[in-house]
Each structure stands twice: as structure tokens, then as C-alpha cells.
Simulated assay, not measured.
Amino acid sequence: MKLDKDFFSDNIKTLFYALIIAIIIRSFLIQPFYIPSSSMEPTLVVGDRLFVTKYSYGYSKHSLPFSPAILNKRILFKNPKRGDVIVFKTPADNRTDYIKRLIGLPGDRIQFIDANLYLNSNEIFKSKIKSKTKIYCGNTSIDVYRFEEKLPNGKKFHTVYLKDYTYQNSDEFIVPKDHYFFLGDNRDCSKDSRFLSSVGYVHKDNLVGKAQFIFFSSDKKIGSIFAFWKWHKSIRFNRSFSKIN
């Protein structure tokens, strides 16, 4: 069978258009992310794959691949809500993607006192769910208390704290204008806005999008996704297609 030039030309055009469509979807609508660390346990665990909506808070240069200097400010901006789980570029390099929970809005005052979280001088209510549970901090299994926390806007979610509450007290954090304060749900195993030299306050232009739902999850400690004979153990079917709270 002889192939003419039109065959190759048509296929190249198809691939080109498909690439353009994929870039548009990834840049302006929805983008997949993989969770590589345990800082957001129990909400997100290592091996979760999730979709993040790019339009939730408008668009900045960080909405685009490689963060090109096309937009000098965020456009079509929508205010994020306290308690949202958000992907953002770290202020340290404006390149690395982090995912954390939004706790502090511009002007808020945040402080840890005796291992309790205070927002604008009011203690964030938390009720203990489990006195003994195990999660991961890196590759280490740790014993934690599990709580349900409730923010002033009524948002509820689960957090975990080490039993000896390693993060006891802090200075007061005052969130600057146009910035946000983030915490990991795994409170004693998260590099977040408490660490000003590495993460600190996050500018609104650094927001990438809102985490919406987990579309797939697997435990690589059990086996590779290519080891199909272990799928019944490695794939977390109970987490797939679950909404992120």
C-alpha cells in the first residue's frame, strides 16, 4: 500500500491540534497532579492522583506551563475560601508546586499556643476522632491523634497531630495584603507557611488552582502500577473518584 504525502500531513496536523487542545485544557480548565508526600494526610495520601481546576481563582502566569512572563498580574480573580485545598507555586522559587489547605486570608492573625491553632485570637475548634491511628511522615510510620477541625466559615476537615504535639507554640503570623497562609493537614509533618524561609506567605499570583477530586490512587509500597497481578492490593478503589474536602 502506497502512502501519499497527504497521509503524513494529515496525521501531523491531527497531532498538532491535539497538542494545542491539551495545552488549552491544562492551562485554563483542569490539570492532573500526583501527591508525592504525606504532608496532607489524612486528606491526601502518597499515590493519590487528583484534578485541579485552573479557573477557580482566575489566571496568572503560573496557570501556564513553565510560568512564562505573559501576565504581570492575576486576571479574572476570584477570592479563595478559607479551608480550600489549593495548589500553588512556592514563593521560594516560583516553580515548585505545593498543595496545602488555606487557613489565613489577608490581614488574618495566626498563632499556635500550646499546640492549639488560633485565628484572630480565637481558638479553632477541634474534636478528637481517634486517640490512636498511624499515618506516614515521609517513609516513617507515626502515631497520631486524629481530629475534626472547624473553621469560622463552617468548613470541616480532618487533621492529625503527633501525640507529643511537637509544634507547640509560635510567634504570631500576620498575613500581608494579597497573600495567604497555608497549613498541611498533617500538622507535625508539613513544610508550609509556618516556615517563612521556605514557604511563608503565598501571593495570590502564585495560586495555581483548587483541588477538586481524586480520580485514581495506588500504593507504590505494594507494587508498581504496571504489576497488574497486585492491582487488587495496590489500587485504592475506595479513594478513586472521591471529592476532596
Score class of each variant (00 low, 15 high):
residue 127 S to E: 13
residue 127 S to C: 14
residue 128 K to I: 12
residue 128 K to F: 11
residue 129 I to F: 15
residue 129 I to G: 08
residue 129 I to Y: 10
residue 129 I to L: 14
residue 130 K to V: 13
residue 130 K to E: 10
residue 130 K to R: 13
residue 130 K to W: 11
residue 131 S to Y: 08
residue 131 S to I: 12
residue 132 K to N: 07
residue 132 K to S: 09
residue 133 T to S: 05
residue 133 T to A: 02
residue 133 T to N: 04
residue 134 K to W: 09
residue 135 I to A: 13
residue 135 I to H: 07
residue 136 Y to S: 04
residue 136 Y to M: 10
residue 137 C to G: 14
residue 138 G to W: 11
residue 138 G to T: 15
residue 138 G to V: 15
residue 139 N to Q: 13
residue 139 N to K: 12
residue 139 N to H: 06
residue 140 T to W: 07
residue 140 T to I: 11
residue 140 T to V: 15
residue 140 T to D: 11
residue 140 T to Q: 09
residue 141 S to P: 08
residue 141 S to W: 12
residue 142 I to L: 08
residue 143 D to V: 04
residue 143 D to W: 00
residue 143 D to A: 04
residue 144 V to I: 14
residue 144 V to G: 12
residue 144 V to W: 13
residue 144 V to E: 02
residue 145 Y to C: 11
residue 145 Y to M: 04
residue 145 Y to S: 09
residue 145 Y to L: 01
residue 146 R to M: 15
residue 147 F to T: 12
residue 148 E to Y: 06
residue 148 E to T: 03
residue 149 E to H: 01
residue 150 K to T: 11
residue 151 L to Q: 03
residue 153 N to F: 02
residue 153 N to K: 00
residue 153 N to E: 01
residue 154 G to C: 04
residue 154 G to K: 05
residue 155 K to Q: 03
residue 155 K to R: 05
residue 155 K to T: 06
residue 155 K to S: 05
residue 156 K to A: 00
residue 157 F to D: 06
residue 158 H to Y: 05
residue 158 H to S: 08
residue 158 H to P: 06
residue 159 T to F: 12
residue 159 T to Q: 04
residue 160 V to E: 11
residue 160 V to D: 03
residue 160 V to G: 03
residue 160 V to I: 13
residue 162 L to D: 01
residue 162 L to R: 03
residue 163 K to G: 07
residue 166 T to D: 05
residue 166 T to R: 00
residue 166 T to H: 08
residue 167 Y to C: 03
residue 167 Y to V: 03
residue 167 Y to I: 02
residue 168 Q to K: 05
residue 169 N to C: 10
residue 170 S to Q: 04
residue 171 D to S: 04
residue 172 E to R: 02
residue 173 F to W: 02
residue 174 I to K: 04
residue 174 I to P: 03
residue 175 V to M: 09
residue 175 V to H: 15
residue 175 V to D: 14
residue 176 P to S: 02
residue 176 P to T: 02
residue 177 K to A: 12
residue 177 K to M: 14
residue 178 D to A: 15
residue 178 D to V: 15
residue 179 H to C: 15
residue 179 H to G: 14
residue 179 H to P: 06
residue 180 Y to K: 11
residue 180 Y to W: 15
residue 182 F to L: 10
residue 182 F to H: 11
residue 182 F to V: 12
residue 182 F to T: 06
residue 183 L to S: 05
residue 183 L to W: 10
residue 184 G to A: 07
residue 184 G to S: 05
residue 185 D to F: 09
residue 185 D to S: 02
residue 186 N to T: 08
residue 186 N to Q: 08
residue 188 D to Q: 01
residue 189 C to R: 07
residue 189 C to Q: 09
residue 190 S to C: 15
residue 190 S to N: 08
residue 191 K to E: 08
